[in-house]
Design a protein around this nucleic acid. Structure first.
Lengths: 333, 333
DNA sequence: TTGTACGCGTTATCAC
DNA sequence: GTGATAACGCGTACAA
């Protein structure tokens, strides 16, 4: 490998001078600079960022931990993060936990060993996140999508209660009173809060909540299918179902099809998070949509600020408002 | 930050000894080791991998470059890579080019500066990949999905010709002779070869190829929509269309719906790469499917071997065979 | 304007 | 068994 020393030798100057021009510090005679640039060029010299970060004590690197990179939500968030991060000169370490706390712990370890300057994470389990019992030593962290109660970290989340509430309100407005829920897991806020919005809306509209209409899934496709089946086979089934995330909505739709029910007639579906098939099923699906990319951008911005040493009296919490995309009449017959 | 020195001081030994126990080199008195482990524990010491890699001259880090992380194909591949890489102790730098050669160049630069031990990349442009004109200095590279002609790199790809051929054969077998093609871009093998499979099949089955049935898209949803429209509005439209990737298939299906055509009756669709909606449309879609995860695993394996210094007389090229998933009769009326 | 020399946190090579 | 110490490649006082 060619080092700064080689360049110095070739340009017949000291390493200090080379360093100066590489980092644009100025104070170098134009002729000298010219010689150095030429040497850099000819030797195909590439600064060793590893060595640099040793002395600078920062790696210009950000760790990003998501629970499921195959869920279309996260790639969009990641795009937002990456774009913003790159603008500030950071490169990403991306890692996937598969919703496993254990993997999250291992990844956290690996990233800290690598001395990332900061972390953006969607934890696998808010109650038992390794983020809390690990001694992070002041490493900046920003939470995305899932908030950790009483944590010292900034976070950017969605107003899930509002989103779910709006969805249910829409269903009530279009005439439904028998509304089923395929909920997310209770140990993460997106799960808990969407259920909360559902319950709150029913209460506000004075519709009695029935236990058998509320099923808790795990945000995965299969559970949407299973729970949909349970709901549809009730003796007095709901006329509408609110599904708490994209993957479960997918499963639910498959189930409805398999059961020979007619969407929009036998059963109306509204889902949290938009998906490809939403505009394909007939009638198209009304969904709660949110600014995924923007969530990533904001997270990256907040993290960079923290890395730069900004402090705030309280951890910041940015709450974005989701938007209901009405695609069908969704009326009950 | 607590360093190896702090541990040494606390355990009253030299840094050398601490290093020995951390790396399990043995040759340390059990009592001493015990003291050291305790010190590590109490100080919450985390080895600095950055410093280590300075002397070891390797970072245990792999750069992964994909053109579009939002295309469901890549997250699956990435999962395969990550799993396998982690087993070998590597952590990933993930980056997204958005199909831009310029971004690819920048990312390559950033990753090389960070001294990744190897690279797994799906290039944005096989003809003008920065991989070729950059002086990589022997850095191991494995290509995924898109092959670069005459490059010295290992690659893992799909037999696109076979996949497309099989799809067309299926259509011919089910009675179609008027078969349209929504092709991928010609400057990448997946595009070129799938077209080749289409052409080859038509020839073998003695069906004249018509120019107006062949449209070249860019692998993005919008182009599937546009080209579908063109095909459907021909005076003598095809009875079946083969779409060269998932996103374009998505666009095509939307188009068919918008145009009020009836899938499976007015027009039959077969797509390359499976997608969520494939089982949702009615009738369900027959698709060419491939082992995405496995592609990632193989790529990671090959890269690790290269990093470990294995050499081969020729660059290796692993060609996986795709599988046709027949979901409908697909007969022509 | 430029050069010397030290330090960043580790590992590895010698001595002891 | 254990300890000094020289690298690794770079940034930066400080000196010249």
């Amino acid at each position: 490998m060619v080092t700064i020393k080689d360049v110095a030798k070739k340009a017949d100057v000291s390493v200090a001078t080379v360093s100066r021009v590489i980092n644009g510090l100025g104070g170098v005679r134009p002729a000298t600079e010219e010689r150095i640039r030429k040497a850099v060029e000819e030797l195909n010299y590439l600064p060793n960022v590893i060595a640099r970060s040793m002395v600078m004590k920062r790696t210009e690197t950000i760790g990003v931990i998501v629970p499921d990179i195959a869920n279309p939500f996260f790639p969009e968030v990641i795009k937002g993060i990456e774009e913003q991060a790159r603008d500030s000169g950071y490169t990403l370490f991306l890692a996937n936990t598969d919703e496993s706390v254990e993997k999250e712990r291992q990844l956290l370890h690996a990233l800290r060993e690598r001395r990332v300057d900061g972390l953006i994470v969607t934890t696998a389990d808010e109650q038992h996140s390794p983020l809390m019992d690990l001694e992070l030593g002041g490493l900046p962290v920003v939470l995305v999508d899932r908030h950790i109660q009483d944590s010292p970290y900034d976070s950017v989340v969605i107003d899930n209660v509002d989103g779910a509430y709006t969805a249910i309100k829409h269903l009530v407005t279009t005439g439904h009173t028998k509304i089923g829920l395929i909920a997310g897991p209770d140990h993460v806020t997106p799960g808990r809060e969407r259920t909360e919005g559902y319950v709150q809306a029913l209460r506000d509209f004075e519709i009695p909540a029935r236990d058998q209409y509320m099923k808790e899934g795990d945000f995965k496709e299969e559970s949407g299918y299973q729970l949909g089946k349970e709901l549809l086979s009730l003796s007095d089934p709901p006329t509408a179902i609110f599904s708490a995330n994209n993957l479960m909505t997918l499963g639910l739709l498959t189930c409805i099809r398999d059961q020979g029910r007619e969407l929009g007639k036998d059963i109306v579906v509204v889902g949290f998070d938009d998906l490809d098939i939403a505009t394909f099923v007939d009638p198209p699906l009304t969904v709660v949509s949110r600014p995924m990319r923007q969530m990533g951008e904001i997270a990256a911005d907040m993290l960079v600020e923290r890395i730069q040493g900004k402090t705030f009296p309280e951890p910041r919490k940015v709450i974005l408002i989701p938007r209901l995309i009405v695609r069908s009449p969704d009326r009950v017959e």
